[in-house]
Design a protein around this nucleic acid. Structure first.
Lengths: 322, 322
DNA sequence: ATCTTTGTTACGGTTAACGAGATAATCCCT
DNA sequence: AGGGATTATCTCGTTAACCGTAACAAAGAT
């Protein structure tokens, strides 16, 4: 028995003052309306309407119940409107997780731009270098860098491709020379980036002769942040692998130089991960759509700038959008 | 789709943290609970729960909707409790109509006694000498005096039998003599009681020779209240027909005398009329039951007192209960 | 790696919901 | 006062929805 439906019928009868009028209003038959009220009365074991075939009158219990019904129906409508709204209009808080480097360099800017078109969406951004449990930690969206698509049951959208390059400080290169190929790195002080998505000891490169791997056994320095790594490299501690986005600024202003320019790390994919595709919240949907629309371009611009740097020996004249 | 049932399921799942646990709690199958939540989500076009096979987590929309659901379910429960209560526990206002004479002499006392056992019932009593439209005027119960059961669609319960007798003042009898049979009345000043339940001009009597009718063509006095009629008779204006309950006090204290003691008016039935027998309000049910339990006895006592008066020539020694 | 637990989906049988027509009862109009 | 019209309810046959069983898929736990 659909109590809400019966309540609607009862309320409509009380308002219209007639079963037939209520039936017309509800686009159903009088039999139906009659049954609805009868069911309600049977369920409550209470007479709600005194009726002859010609007129109806609410009982005292009916009057009271009617008030409650109307309130309840209004609440239900309100709740449904609000819930449906979540699907239609982007609003509310968006809990986003992202890996620290990406977060610093792309996500915060992206949030700022996204909020210009969707000011009703607020953000709770968490930067952490791990792949989170979306359900346990309550994230709506996670932005992760990974070599391949994670096989969790969640929905993944690829936001673009990036890679890392080997860098050192000009002073380090001057003092220790520049490696020309991966195996040369064994003779250098290799600073290692600790990250869940790239192997710590095995460094894989794509070079002119295909993929080459070198195993780094020892390191004077380990750190889990790409920006900290950049600072470490800049200070001349050794050579290190840096994501393009973390290296580009240093290359621009000359505090970093790229070594082994023919080699780059294996490509990494940037993914947005979220729990479900069904009945997706508007804020999640629009946010992921925005990322898909803006991030690939920005990543590509960085890479284009890097290529231009390789060609011209300097970054002068090439400006990045954003 | 029973939205309330789905809400209960959803609420239960959210509370229990598992579909299976909710199914146990609701005494149904997991499949059912799963469908309930799915239906809700489909209806709202909004994801309420993010779920893997192992864990579930509310979405933001789900959290908000859950709060609403719990509130709504509480309201529904409250409304149902209140409405069902009307059937179980006598309380609230009882709107009663009664004919004036009966009301004065029996109903007010009955209300006072009834309320000793049901103090939560309040009364709205209307005295009027007409058969009301229960629906239009919103009466719960009407107490009417009629020669035969009214054929309206309402429920009638007989509360007892009464009749009227012909009375005059001792002074009037001394001056004008006492009528011995109905036809004698034509030579007397006949005071007439205007009432919807007894004919105005045709007075019907049950006497030793069966029913006799006399037509009263003119009258010095018409009034619509039995008590006013009693006062008129007492003051010696003429002879009149008085209901037993209105006459007894006068007979007791000697301000009235009965004429034609072998004749009485046609018996009149006292009825309680109320709109419905189905899912009757507790206050209506108990009230009518109380009337049925107490009124016949009181009416019979009056009549017994009257018979005793006829036999002994006085009312001394016979006391009426109440 | 296998087993257990858990949520979802598919299927089939039962149930109830629905609409049309019949019925009874009341009101309005003549 | 009586007949027509309106109105709520009842009945019945059809249909669609619901429910439980069971197979399936996925995620922890051992």
């Amino acid at each position: 028995m659909d109590t809400l439906q019966n309540m609607r019928a009862f309320s409509c009868v009380a308002e219209a003052g007639s079963f037939t009028a209520a039936a017309v209003q509800l686009d159903t038959t009088t039999a139906n309306v009659s049954r609805a009220v009868s069911n309600l009365e049977a369920h409550l074991q209470t007479r709600l309407l005194n009726r002859t075939t010609r007129r109806i009158a609410l009982t005292e219990a009916g009057k009271r119940y009617l008030l409650r019904c109307e309130q309840i129906l209004a609440y239900v409508e309100e709740a449904e409107a609000e819930a449906s709204d979540a699907h239609a209009r982007p609003a509310g808080q968006l809990k986003v997780h992202t890996m620290t480097g990406i977060g610093q360099h792309f996500v915060i800017d992206a949030i700022a731009r996204y909020r210009k078109t969707h000011p009703d969406v607020t953000f709770d951004l968490t930067l952490a270098n791990r792949v989170p449990d979306l359900l346990d930690e309550g994230y709506d969206v996670s932005i992760v860098l990974a070599s391949e698509l994670p096989d969790s049951g969640f929905v993944s959208q690829r936001l673009g491709i990036t890679y890392s390059i080997v860098c050192a400080s000009p002073a380090y290169v001057k003092a220790n020379g520049a490696a020309q190929k991966p195996s040369d790195l064994l003779n250098h002080a290799c600073l290692r980036l600790v990250s869940p998505v790239i192997p710590l000891e095995k460094w894989a490169f794509d070079g002119p002769d295909g993929q080459e791997t070198v195993t780094i056994n020892s390191s004077p320095f380990l750190v889990n942040s790409a920006d900290a790594m950049k600072t470490a490299i800049t200070s001349g501690m050794g050579v290190g692998v840096l994501p393009v986005y973390a290296a580009i600024e240093g290359l621009r202003n000359g505090t970093l130089v790229r070594v082994m320019p023919n080699y780059r790390s294996q490509e990494l994919n940037l993914y947005a991960i979220y729990p479900s595709r069904q009945y997706l919240d508007a804020k999640i949907k629009t946010w992921v759509e925005y990322l898909r629309g803006s991030l690939p371009e920005i990543l590509a611009a960085h890479q284009a700038e890097l290529v231009a740097y390789e060609l011209t020996g300097s970054l002068a004249g090439v400006r990045v959008a954003n």
